[in-house]
Nucleic acid binder design. Structure first.
Lengths: 352, 352
DNA sequence: ATGAAAGCGCTAACAT
DNA sequence: ATGTTAGCGCTTTCAT
């Protein structure tokens, strides 16, 4: 706990440099249209006084905050079950930093926090919001879009159906469906015929999209070969046992993410099934600590999570630039960035 | 991207309610000293207009921000190698939320970002800072303490030696040394005599403290039984091979964290050593996804990471309250919270 | 108990 | 090119 000294103001700097406040302001904000000798004098005064602009005062007049909110609604497990968000945050942080914007993190534990988030966003503290909309039925995203804050979503929100031309909702997502297709096609290419799927929680679009991808390839898949998981190791274990019970002769499994694949792997090992000889396994995510360290290492679908974060931030900032600095109302589709779906790549390791 | 409507001001609410701005302000800030009928009228006007206070304007006069910066300096790996920070953030977020404070996340990729962080903190955007000081030689913490912002550190900073009475630096840490002692004593209690230690990176106080704890019990430990790791699975593997090469007859290993323990486990399995029969293994952290899912499940030292985060925030906020709302200068040791070291507990599972 | 008025520190017209 | 000035929206004395 150190002391809070009262900071020098523009006024003080102006006095010291023997110029007006306006001139100091100009210098501080880039020095356009100020002659060199004056710039010099002001810089010196700023330096000597240790002047730092008061952001509150500045925001009050500019109505800009150089801050972006990141909203993560996750009642429980997942935030720390996998490093997904940490990576995404990293990407976001890098991009925001490059644009001198700050990252305000809004974590919610449940619906009781939503009002607070809505209030904050509506309160005009930030220039925009990056929102992770995980569950189909979650009211938060809608609430946020209602708050009148420019927003980019991480992952396709439930109401955006992925068809082109949906200009009102901007999101960044991986090509979950295409990635799943690649994974399943890989298994087919290996000569596997009884291919099972452990899904994610089907109230999340990523899980639904991966299931759709699975179905794209296995057009008339035996319904017994599809079991709902929940993106956790325990869920993967449970699902694997279920599958084996239903259909002992299966020869491949596509798990909707790496951690559930690791659970499946554990069950297969326990039951003496060799991987990949008896059962080939493919995951999704390429979460390194999981995929690379599992036994055997996991063949999986890689998505560049950090890049997704970076892109979300970039899209938001670009949209912010486009709108007139002060003018309310958006610029229409012309200036509005549209959603981006990033490609995935299959990473071959030992499990399939 | 939704449109940004221009928000109603205090003035507008006052007009609508037929009162002065001052009265509206009083109602909005708790309604002390305003008679019921008026309070009612104002509340109604606020509701109808959807008024939300402009925080910039408020901060400009109150000099409070109701925001706290969380600074995480982590060039690379660790932030996403384990869920440590996610948990800590969660704890911090919960506590801040309860006090209506916002969390501003400052991530740094390297020393080139330090100036930016320093500037931000010095700029008076936040009421205080929560700083994770991971490396002994990191200049960031000092820089921050110099910025004149009330700060609480996560993990003992290198310069704080842990002796009582160091009132200038406030930190929250686990009892790394005590926890390590418990772990090693447990192994001794199991009858193990050739106990090895895989340390963490010794430029971090947590790793040093755990090593000290190990030495407290193994007073004259064979130096060959101590190998430096780096808190990663790969480091754990490397260290385990090294140990086995140096001293094949070892019968126990205390790894400085769970992920390096999991690496060690993998090597032991690969080399046909049974755990715990041939070699007992104890980790540190009780990182559930790792400790519980490893094979065999890991006996480890649990620290309540989320609680650490919560406590950091609580300490900071308490310190903030103590100082006069506006008055510069701190209140001296009397009002200054002091550091807290949280106890750890040994969790017995199958590995030792 | 309520209102009037004075700024908080800054930017952005507008004047010079 | 530089200075002057009028607010941005709010809280907070100080009157009433």
């Amino acid at each position: 706990m150190t002391e809070t000294a009262s900071r020098p103001t523009l006024e003080a700097v102006a006095a010291r440099a023997g110029v007006s406040r306006a001139t100091v302001s100009r210098v501080v904000n880039g020095g356009e249209g100020v002659r060199e000798p004056l710039v010099e004098r002001v810089r010196k005064a700023v330096e000597e006084l240790g002047y730092v602009p008061n952001q509150a005062a500045r925001s009050l007049v500019t109505r800009r905050h150089d801050a972006v909110a990141v909203v993560i609604a996750e009642p429980e497990t997942r935030v720390f079950a996998d490093p997904f968000f940490a990576l995404q945050l990293r990407g976001i942080s890098k991009e925001l930093t490059a644009h001198d914007s700050q990252l305000v993190l809004l974590l919610t534990e449940g619906p009781e926090d939503y009002a607070r988030v809505g209030r904050y966003l509506a309160g005009g503290h930030v220039d925009g919001a990056l929102v992770f909309s995980l569950h189909l039925d979650d009211p938060l995203p809608a609430l946020i879009q209602g708050a009148g804050v420019p927003t980019v979503f991480g992952g396709r929100p439930g109401w955006a159906d992925g068809t082109r031309g949906d200009a009102t909702t901007v999101y960044v997502d991986s090509d979950n469906r295409g990635g799943a297709r690649d994974a399943v096609r890989h298994l087919v290419g290996l000569g596997r015929t009884r291919i099972a799927h452990i899904t994610g929680p089907l109230d999340q679009t990523s899980a639904v999209d991966r299931l759709d991808g699975f179905r794209d390839v296995m057009v008339d898949a035996d319904p017994r070969l599809i079991v709902e998981g929940d993106f956790t190791p325990a869920g993967g274990e449970r699902a694997m046992r279920e599958l084996l019970g239903r259909c002992p002769e299966l020869d491949a499994v596509f798990a909707a993410n790496d951690v559930s694949a690791s659970g499946a792997l554990r069950v297969l090992r326990e039951l003496g099934r060799r991987v990949p000889e008896d059962v080939a396994v493919v995951g999704f995510d390429d979460m390194l600590p999981v995929a690379e360290q599992s036994d055997p290492p996991l063949t999986t679908v890689r998505q560049d999570i950090e890049e997704m974060g970076r892109l979300m931030a970039r899209l938001l900032l670009r949209g912010l630039e486009r709108r007139a600095p002060d003018e309310p109302g958006d610029q229409g589709p012309a200036g509005t960035p549209s959603s981006v779906v990033l490609p995935t790549t299959l990473v071959r390791r030992a499990s399939a």
